Amino acid sequence: MTSSQPRSIAYMEAIKSIITEISHVHALQPMLDLVVAAIQEQLDFYIASIFWYDEAAQEAMLMAQAGKATNEQPLGYRQPVAQGVLGRTLRERRALLINDVRREASYISPQGYDAGGAELCVPIWCDDRLWGAFNVESQVAGVFTEPDVLALELVSAQLGVAIANLELRTNERAMLASLQAQHDQLHELYSLVLQLSTPVIPLFPGILAMPLIGTLDEERAQHMAQELLEAIQRTRCRTVVLDVTGLAAIDAAVARAIVTLAQSCRLLGAAVVISGVRPEVAQTLVALDLSAMSAVVMRRDFADGVGCALRMQGLEIRRI
């Protein structure tokens, strides 16, 4: 770094390397390591460091570094923003070029050599948010010029854009994962609601009851049919009581679904009793003029339906 011309070429090489490679990095730490390594490889600073600004704690945390003095502070080292050229850069939110650090009151001398040399620190912005700072130091006083400031600001700007894009992708992945988790929870809840809204209840040996509650759409009708037919086959049921008292409305589509279910039950050898038949329900079923209805017994309420199912089995309930 003996002249501005070779140094400007080195900066351009570093910037070109960073722009080429940074788009392929999808994690923060490798990205920061890549940037300081590219700068150090081309310009051979005493030390090049990237700090993250913890605004809540008013501290700068060392995230990546390269150079001859990398053993002085470990990664994760925290420096109060009230101290040092780095802290002043973050407080004033602007680039600072200190070509003779012995004249800078805020300068913190690294361990291992006498205070002297130059320091250049520029902020790293993610959109309008101060993310941190890029700090480079030389043991040679007067080595930095305004072109160095512009070049390092360009590097920091590229890094800021890359960090913002990475955060955006990370947030998108987190949002998608959250949405997927919510979808899974809703699916589980919906499955539970379906199971609770179409329960199959064993009443007596050979007799099952299924109360229908709320509204009956196509998906719920399919679920209802699957649950009931599996229960008939599993229990060798001979009579089913379908109670429609709790259905909010029974139009032609719902009535057809109930009749279709009754036909399926009969194919498995189970007779069907429909209970809770209100006058408007009876009118809807009659209007359909379905021949399958002739094999279905209808009763006014659930108690009558259960009594009918018992009699079909040759059973009855007596007071003792």
Rank of each mutant, 00 (worst) to 15 (best):
S4W: 09
P6I: 01
S8G: 12
I9Q: 15
A10V: 10
I15G: 07
K16D: 14
S17C: 13
T20C: 12
T20G: 10
I22T: 00
Q29I: 08
P30I: 03
P30M: 06
P30R: 07
L32N: 00
A37V: 02
A38Q: 09
A38F: 02
E41H: 13
E41N: 14
Q42R: 10
Q42Y: 03
D44K: 11
F45T: 04
I47W: 09
I50A: 04
W52G: 13
Q58R: 14
Q58M: 12
E59D: 13
M61T: 15
A64G: 09
G67N: 08
T70R: 02
Q83M: 11
G84C: 02
R91H: 11
E92I: 05
R93S: 11
R94M: 09
A95W: 09
N99G: 06
D100M: 07
V101D: 04
R103V: 12
A105H: 11
Q111N: 14
Y113E: 14
A118Y: 07
E119I: 03
V122C: 00
P123H: 00
L130T: 04
L130F: 03
L130S: 07
A141I: 09
F144M: 00
T145C: 14
T145H: 14
E146W: 14
E146N: 15
V149S: 01
E153Y: 10
L154V: 12
N171Q: 15
E172K: 14
Q180T: 12
E188A: 12
L189I: 13
L189P: 07
V193S: 10
L194A: 08
I201F: 06
L203Y: 08
D217H: 03
E218H: 12
A221H: 03
A225E: 05
A225T: 03
Q226Y: 05
T235R: 10
R238E: 01
V241D: 04
T245G: 10
A255N: 07
A257R: 02
T260L: 12
A270Q: 08
V272N: 06
S275C: 08
G276W: 03
V277K: 01
V286S: 11
A287Q: 12
D289N: 13
A295M: 15
V297L: 13
R299T: 11
R300S: 11
D301A: 03
F302I: 02
D304Y: 06
C308S: 12
A309L: 06
L310D: 08
L310E: 07
L310R: 01
R311E: 04
G314L: 01
L315D: 08
E316G: 14
I317W: 12
